[in-house]
């Protein structure tokens, strides 16, 4: 997850992933090449998951699915983020199974479970549930607004 920080600076793009592994490995292997300028454009074609096991490019989405995904992006952006400060409660991101390092970009879910931002955003685009406790993120978020 070496490029967490790079992702977090590009707001929306950070949520529109799915072709990451392709992008990482291809840039690793090719290094600087004459094709460098065209590669990011291809890799940037957003891929979405209107439901967990469905993968589609933006052109294939129905209007209804587009609305659903736009709402979801908005909701995810309302979830608090931060940088890992060495807190002992969460030691490892259960999605990538890598230990948190001080300074890693993390996201906190309403149930207080913590993940790398890149890891959890990838999952939340498929399913709005906490991977650890299965708590629906949207319902919990609404409740926290009402009580605060």
């Amino acid at each position: 997850m070496g490029n967490c920080l790079k992702r977090s600076t590009t707001d929306d793009i950070s949520l529109l992933r799915g072709s990451d592994s392709v992008r990482e490995s291809s840039s690793d292997q090719l290094g600087p090449s004459p094709y460098q300028e065209t590669l990011p454009i291809q890799a940037a074609t957003p891929v979405y998951h209107p439901s967990p096991s469905v993968t589609r490019s933006v052109a294939q989405l129905t209007e209804e699915e587009q609305v659903k995904i736009a709402k979801r992006i908005g909701l995810i952006q309302h979830l608090p983020t931060g940088t890992y400060d060495g807190c002992k409660k969460a030691r490892e991101c259960v999605i990538c199974m890598v230990e948190f390092l001080v300074g890693d970009a993390v996201r906190y879910l309403p149930c207080m479970h913590t993940y790398h931002m890149a890891c959890i955003d990838d999952w939340l685009m498929r399913s709005l549930t906490c991977p650890s406790c299965m708590e629906p993120v949207d319902a919990a978020l609404l409740t926290s607004y009402e009580t605060n």
Binding site: M1, D20, S21, E24, S25, C96, V98
Partner: peptide, 14 residues
Amino acid sequence: AGMSPSERRLQKEL
């Protein structure tokens, strides 16, 4: 090094 995130996780699980 050179592994994708999914390969890295699978290696850890193994």
